[in-house]
Nucleic acid binder design. Structure first.
Lengths: 371, 371
DNA sequence: ACGATCTGTACCAGATGCGAC
DNA sequence: AGTCGCATCTGGTACAGATCG
């Protein structure tokens, strides 16, 4: 170290790998190091000519300020912490991806802490890890409702931006309006003439799932339709399949003509179980999903569903984040509402049979048992 | 600042939000900050009693060392840079997730830079962003072959670990053996009796896709079977659908009995197009996919496919990363090989018709036009 | 004299208040 | 008043030196 310094003074630098510092730039530009600092931070009181010289020196040396040194003194890192809970699902993954791209284009680094589960302890340690890195904000994209609770329970010291559709307070939220999406889904079904519309809900620890249940219930109520107890799955096609099987094997005729599934995967499993038991979709029962994952257009039958714009969601997260950091009192981005995508899994109900309990329907087209 | 220091000396600290520093710990423990540093870094020559006192002070003050300060002086950040290219697909997303969890449990932070496309310029700027953060290594999980090229072309100064199945040199790679997976897929088809096995390949800029093509070709060759020109899609169900449609509308009878699809999504689109044109899967044509995404077990019919263990892949990335950082001359983790998952989309070929150009097969079970 | 233990000081690479031209 | 430089600060690590039995 001492030797290098010495050599440097004499104009000899033996360490080829060393990166340029603000001092090197200053020396080359013939100014003091903090004049360089002024130029770097766009502060006033620097003569244009001086600024030019400094800038030339900067490019000449390919100088880049050290984030570590900067973070140390400013206590801000220009990085934001991103916490996700839940598996590699299309929606969250998409949002994360677009959020990350947007953040980078705003010259923010993002430090990621993702976890399959959402147990409070690991969540807490993840938050601590991020906090120690001097993240300027924390973004939470959680599949589990509990995650938001525990993160809110931690003294963060930095703003928290969370994807949340429940309208809870205490943090900055950005959302897609699950409630309205659910109502639109049910409205579509009801508009086709369905009166007995079941709901295959997502897990109870999901805010989105709860909001969709609420929307389903309210839309039904507004139309004077009855809401049976919703089935609650876990978002997986397997759970959709399980409930589909249960429904199909309940014995006798089906006592419903349509199902609003909490997401496309469960819809897939449901449809699979139904058709395996000889019920045709949509001839016997209509099924609508939620999300519009890329696959759903090619399901058999192509799935009618509610599209969520996850790309915009990701960008909106950054947008509100930037606003919050700039201390703007903006009310945030208004929630987007999912868009109905009509494909082939929904149709009018089979027969307007007011008689209770018709035996297995007559439409045999497309029915066959599998395996 | 000066005021605070003064108050501090008098024992009054007015800034409640200030976090404890190593000096605070030292003062409380009655030692020098340097001694504190020693216990922090598990260095020798600290009396057990002293160590105890320091540790007590640390917990009392809830002290956590500042990564910024540490990074500044050590020039290592304990964070690793993660670059991903491509969309929110199940495989990469899964791997990223598990990698991140593993990294965190090894007390490494990960700074993420994901991008949909892989154009050299944004890739380069992403790498620069990471490098400036003093990441200790860069992990690349790229859908596009070109991404690896351009990243390799950059003077990183830190190790590069990339997911790559081609066996290229110049970086540390961790992989799933796509070649063997492809051979196994074709072997399964051939074992069923198929002799005319098409391949619906992934895009040419994907190493994985190329390896699968190679495996398909080699397995066919070894069995004395002919390899038609592969179709090349883009991983999307839409592209699978397009090729399925083209095949079905080629006129006359099908000149193949099985298709090896490059991934499950394309297989889905393909099956969809085939069945829409009245061809039954697997009665008329067998289809095998690749990846085993969670949905594929519930496709119609449930898809036979090659399962890749993305979870382990993610963990393996961290494992080799750790080995590289520790400068171990380990040869890395051996590539895993995908596992055949037999479901219902593959079966023996329809009829052992050696006569060329049989007209539309006789098996009508399960055939119907959709829409 | 000497090894174990601990302290003092320089240093990392920037930002910032204050004073000087 | 507008430009610019000196000194000091951020929170750690590293190395040399001091103390002590």
């Amino acid at each position: 170290m001492r030797l290098r310094r010495l050599l440097e003074v004499v104009g000899i630098d033996d360490d080829k790998t060393r990166v340029a510092t603000i001092f090197d730039v200053a020396r080359l530009a013939g100014v003091s190091h903090q004049t360089v600092s002024r130029v770097l931070n766009d502060l006033p009181n620097v003569r244009p000519a001086t600024r030019q010289r400094v800038e030339k020196a900067i490019t000449a040396l390919n100088y880049r300020p050290s984030p570590a040194a900067r973070a140390l003194v400013t206590r801000r890192s220009r990085t934001i912490g991103l916490i996700t809970t839940g598996g590699p699902d299309y929606g969250p993954s998409s949002a994360v991806l677009h959020f990350n791209e947007a953040a980078r284009s705003s010259r923010y680094a993002v430090s990621m802490a993702s976890m399959l589960s959402s147990d409070p302890d690991s969540l807490r340690s993840a938050v601590e890890l991020l906090l120690r890195q001097n993240v300027e904000a924390i973004v939470l994209i959680a599949a589990h409702r509990g995650a938001l609770d525990t993160v809110q329970g931690i003294e963060l010291g930095v703003p928290l931006i969370a994807v949340d559709s429940s309208g809870r307070a205490g943090f900055h939220s950005v959302a897609i309006d699950q409630y309205r999406g659910a109502r639109a889904a049910v409205a579509h079904l009801a508009g086709l003439g369905h009166t007995r519309i079941l709901h295959l809900a997502g897990p109870a620890d999901s805010t989105d799932a709860l909001e969709r249940v609420r929307g389903w219930r309210d839309e039904l109520a507004e139309r004077g339709l009855e809401a049976a107890q919703p089935m609650v799955g876990d978002w997986s096609p397997a759970s959709g399949f399980a409930f589909g099987t249960a429904l199909a094997e309940r014995g006798g005729a089906l006592d419903f003509t349509a199902v609003f599934a909490g997401n496309d995967q469960m819809a897939l499993g449901l449809v699979h179980a139904l058709t395996a038991h000889g019920f045709a979709v949509p001839a016997d029962v209509s099924v609508i999903g939620f999300d519009d994952i890329p696959e759903s257009a090619y399901f058999a039958p192509p799935l009618t569903t509610m599209r969520q714009d996850f790309d915009s969601l990701g960008r909106d997260i950054l947008f509100t984040l930037l606003a919050v950091l700039a201390d703007e009192e903006s009310s945030g981005v208004p929630p987007m509402v999912p868009e109905l995508v009509i494909r082939s899994s929904t149709a009018p109900p089979p027969v307007p049979s007011p008689t209770s309990g018709p035996d297995v329907g007559a439409a045999d087209v497309g029915r066959r048992a599998r395996r």
